[in-house]
Write a protein that binds this DNA or RNA. Sequence first.
DNA 1: CCCGCGCCGGAAAGCGCTCTCAGCGCCATG
DNA 2: CATGGCGCTGAGAGCGCTTTCCGGCGCGGG
Lengths: 347, 347
Amino acid sequence: MTETAPRPTLEAVAARAGVSRATVSRVVNGGEGVREPLVERVRRAVEELGYVPNQAARSLVTKRHDAVAVVIAEPETRVFADPFFALQLRGISKELTAHDSQLVLLLTEGRADHARVGRYLAGGHVDGALVFSLHLDDPLPELVQRAGVPTVFGGRPDWGEGNRSVYVDSDNRGGAREAVRHLVGLGRRRVAHITGALDQTSAVDRLDGFRDVVVDADPRLIAEGDFTPAGGERAMRLLLERCPDLDAVFAANDLAASGALRVLRAQGRRVPEDVAVVGFDDMLPVAEQTDPPLTTIRQDIEEMGRLMAGLLLRALDRRGTPLDDGPGADGGSGVVLPTTLVRRASA
Amino acid sequence: MTETAPRPTLEAVAARAGVSRATVSRVVNGGEGVREPLVERVRRAVEELGYVPNQAARSLVTKRHDAVAVVIAEPETRVFADPFFALQLRGISKELTAHDSQLVLLLTEGRADHARVGRYLAGGHVDGALVFSLHLDDPLPELVQRAGVPTVFGGRPDWGEGNRSVYVDSDNRGGAREAVRHLVGLGRRRVAHITGALDQTSAVDRLDGFRDVVVDADPRLIAEGDFTPAGGERAMRLLLERCPDLDAVFAANDLAASGALRVLRAQGRRVPEDVAVVGFDDMLPVAEQTDPPLTTIRQDIEEMGRLMAGLLLRALDRRGTPLDDGPGADGGSGVVLPTTLVRRASA
DNA sequence: CCCGCGCCGGAAAGCGCTCTCAGCGCCATG
DNA sequence: CATGGCGCTGAGAGCGCTTTCCGGCGCGGG
């Protein structure tokens, strides 16, 4: 608002406290090895002057930034028509805050932006990066790899096991299995599956989970969706047409399930009496709002975010030890979070 | 991942190009006053070495950071059980990116965090701040004010007209008027209103808009909600009890409307035949998913974000001119974005 | 042919901070 | 009483960059 008043410097504090800059610096950074009376005097000077250290100057010499980049690719932001985004970010933020780190958000808009992100990461503005890259052909992983910035991925990257990378993911496959088992446990015999966008590992994993339970699934019982309500509708219509006798549907996410629900209702099928439906994600505003409320697989999104940040920070703390040492043997490692079945009315 | 290789410095580039550091600096920052052959040589050296300027060192001398803080208070993140958040951020990000600025996200978790945010802003890490502070008693505005950081608010701050502050807001009052007029135009005579959380100006403004149209509204036709589905349900029940003859409801947002819809259906009222319902926000995953799909007031969230960022950046560019000069005379100014009615099935 | 003006490029002074290193005073010891 | 050692403080050297201030060079006019 008003003119930015010149901030007091270390020098000023030192002068006021009648000590050297070095001493002030020591006090400000933990006060080791400075005697009490001096500490007190410095503290007071800091207080009185309203001194706040200049981060730029500090970074210049320490080479730490206490900042972490969160990179989210454009396609994701569309998926973030759900609270996924906010929750994840919140978890990350909490963890970073606890470690006095800042969150720098990098949203990318298509290919052109990748160069920008690469430059930014390579520019050494941040200590590490959290990357959400759920698409198979995404150049982002490659990019951060080259930038040489310690990175943790959100969601299992698609590259082979050989590649060393750290990631946090939900137990998509296990969750899917649980969903389908629940359906089967209900006595359903013709369980269909609406997949997610199959260029994302989460969708592939959920499909795999489905297949784990419905071994030799009738291929006509599997329809490709894209995680959207519209895609869910399309898939459901196709499914109904191909297999009018289906008695259950496992949709790759709640959004798709909501679309399926609408088609089912429109075609006069009762849920769950005629067709039982299970979703995935437990995104509240959707799952609770559908009619009937959706039985679904919950994943703890916020915890995922927190974990990602935690993993990165820990790696950063013990720099030198490469990040990719960890539970997962020698080549990258992943942390997979459990999912739980939430029973509502739809199955 | 691997050890962070030491980045090349200006010095290194200069050596390689056979010029002085100053010349390299000039070329890197726009290349004014350096002759073509030299420019070319420097460019090549930069390329070959993969030089990226060190932002910390640069900030230290320029006092610019090319970064803007986005401050979002915890209560908001709850509201962000909708895509509001993501969209807003996306708009902001786009604008900032176009101006080569970074987005630093500050999520606050309750009071304790305010000090942290204050310190951060005062610390001169960013050039300006975008603050979302929708609550009447929020200390955030006060805080950024004191930090002396140029700021643009998202949503009209609650303080009086006398206060100078820049903000961007939706035309909540106008939108509300339009919603209610639509209902009245449909021939509805007993229009009720479910308010939002009245400690937010948006809720107050929407209520005011309602009153603008329904002058001398029966106070029993107004029930306080809190922008949540649960609150909407409660309010709807209360309303039905007090005024069984109501024939329309304007809910302060879509979430509340969805709750109201459920209660209406449960009590056997047909929508829109018996009771017409209009929401606010047009948050797609909710508004399109309800049964029947919700007629609502749309606001362009992304544009709001873009505008906020644009306003701030422009102010930053012409530093010296205080931010609070602008269309709104001498004491702060606000930009209010129009809203539009989206007709679906509920009214 | 020489001088002056203008433009180009280099030298150098920091920006605010951290951190090493040396020095000083004090206590414990011989 | 002298000496070694240790703990605390201060001086100073940069971190990598921008930017001001000049010196030097090339050109046109006298």
